[in-house]
Amino acid sequence: MLLEVKNLNAGYGFLQILRDVSLTVDTGEYVCLVGPNGAGKSTTLKTIAGLVSPMSGEILFNGEPIGSLPGNKVARKGISFVSEEMNLFVNMTVQENLAMGAYTLKDKKLQKDRLDFVYDLFPRLVERRNQLAGTMSGGERKMLAIGRGLMPNPKLLLVDEPSFGLAPLLTENVFQSLDTLVSQGVTIMVVEQNVTKTLAVTDRGYVLENGRIGLSGKSSDLACDAHVRKVFLGV
């Protein structure tokens, strides 16, 4: 098992958001975490990425506990987090942002390979390589954020709200590139509010409600589930 989360409780200060969340991600899988606003989806990803420290519970990555590590150490273990706000370096160029993504890679040759890989995946970024990240459109920033996440050749890519604030056509683009990545063997865990779309493309899913895992199973099964259809799809 690549990632194993056991009975995770987490939150901000005195406010507990996650209650006994357990989930697993296997190598090569494309897993989604769906749920209504405020269910704790983003908090789950942030806790795994080491940006929020857990109150109790275990997070195992390749069998190794990473729950108590800060974000930079988690990143060095091979988990890349693409946050909802993207957290780009807005006063750096696209190329510099990608170079920062490879901060943990010491090998120059490998850095170059990864850069080519990302430019291959998002040809748009090549055109914009000398532009400041802060001056780009929402879709391009999302591509850049995912690209930066891919630079260190992560074992697990966590993507928070890939469609957030994007026009439908761009959302489609971003999902297509995630598909391409999965077909190339990258393990991805994605959090989304666009439930229909997400369940259509992912392998497996978890439904988070009020900080607890309500349902889990194959995405195609979840999409047909009566409860999911009633709550999220309104049918």
Binding site: L51, G71, N72, A75, R76, L88, M92, A99, M100, Y103
Partner: peptide, 24 residues
């Protein structure tokens, strides 16, 4: 330099710096 870039990265976005593996 790599370290100089890391300093600028922290100035621009602390969370972003953590995500890419820079020790604050």
């Amino acid at each position: 330099t790599r370290t100089g870039r890391a300093i600028r990265a922290v100035a621009q976005d602390e969370t972003g710096a953590l995500i890419v593996g820079i020790g604050l």
